[in-house]
């Protein structure tokens, strides 16, 4: 496969789906374990608010080989240089600055988005670079041929898309280390952080479930992948507990193929309770068999593309 060449770009497969709890991370982690049998694989957890691919993998945090704290710019005012002109307050689109009756402006840190507009417009150069911690990024080897990259924001920080942007930059550097496959696990929803994780990927798996919630959120995520022109395939998880025909109707309407069904499997609970990935510890389970089938189809799609 051409992806094996050191200089070629890895194939990037995103796992998303809109609704929370449909099994995105379970599918992403187990799929990446399957890929790692044949390829050097990197899994990325873009659910920066609740990254739990590591927990699911059963690997302890002390195996983390690399961590980097992420900071955001905040303005620091030099009182002696400030002439109280109010230019920064007017420039602040987030309304994070207040010019009180005396002294330099006051910053409302939680509203600041770090755009630096205040610093750019300040006529007297009274603003210095400050920073606030917004989260941390980590790198962990899961097996010999599979590594995990994930980020976690500090609780209360609202701009998860900003963190996703930082993780994307780190991903760019790390993925050059000869990785052939990138499996990208996204957060639920169809917002900035999900969009940042999806842009520019080769394909996306839309993991859903046959419930009204699953249907509703599947429609949302389909709108999103169509908007950005991302080739997608639907995966129906817990396929034997609801009416899959409604998901197939959505698939027909949108022209997005259902690549596979994964039946409800109690062993998935055991896998979660003991943090033992399905494909490693429950190889004969119906989940693993169904996912292996999906893996085969994906490999064929990728192989055909590279011919």
């Amino acid at each position: 496969m051409a992806a094996g060449d050191a200089n070629s770009k890895p194939i990037q497969i995103a796992v998303t789906g809109g609704k929370g709890g449909t099994g995105k991370t379970t599918v992403a982690l187990n799929l990446s374990l399957l890929f790692s049998r044949d390829f050097k694989t990197l899994i990325l957890d873009y659910d920066v608010e609740n990254p739990n691919a590591l927990i699911l993998s059963g690997i302890e945090q002390d195996k983390i080989t690399f961590s980097r704290k992420v900071y955001q710019f905040i303005p620091v005012f030099k009182g002696d240089k400030c002439v109280r002109c109010g230019a920064c307050v007017n420039a602040c689109n987030s309304n994070a600055l207040l010019l009180p009756r005396e002294g330099p402006p006051t910053l409302f840190e939680n509203l600041c988005e770090g755009c630096r507009a205040c610093k750019l417009v300040c006529p007297t150069d009274a603003i210095e670079d400050g920073r606030k911690l917004i989260g941390e990024m980590h790198r962990v080897p899961l097996t010999d041929s599979l590594e995990l990259l994930y980020a976690e924001i500090v609780p209360g920080f609202e701009k998860s898309g900003y963190m996703a942007m930082h993780l994307r930059r780190l991903e760019k550097t790390v993925s050059r280390e000869g990785f052939e496959i990138l499996v990208v696990d996204t957060a639920p929803g169809a917002h900035c952080d999900v969009l940042r994780a999806l842009m520019g990927r080769n394909m996306a798996l839309l993991v859903t479930e046959p419930t009204p919630f699953g249907e509703h959120d599947l429609r949302l995520i389909i709108d999103l992948v169509k908007l950005i022109g991302l080739e997608s395939y639907i995966v129906i998880n817990r396929s034997n507990i609801g009416d899959t025909s409604r998901i197939y109707n959505i698939a027909d309407e949108s022209g997005i193929e259902v690549i596979g069904e994964i039946p409800f499997d109690e062993e998935v609970f055991k896998s979660h309770v003991h943090s033992k990935p399905m494909v490693l510890h429950y190889p004969d389970s119906s989940f693993t068999r169904a996912l292996t089938e999906i893996y085969g189809k994906l490999k064929k799609i990728i192989g055909d593309r590279l011919k």
Partner: peptide, 9 residues
Amino acid sequence: GGAGIQAVQ
């Protein structure tokens, strides 16, 4: 966002 702060300003 920050309507309260802007209004106070």
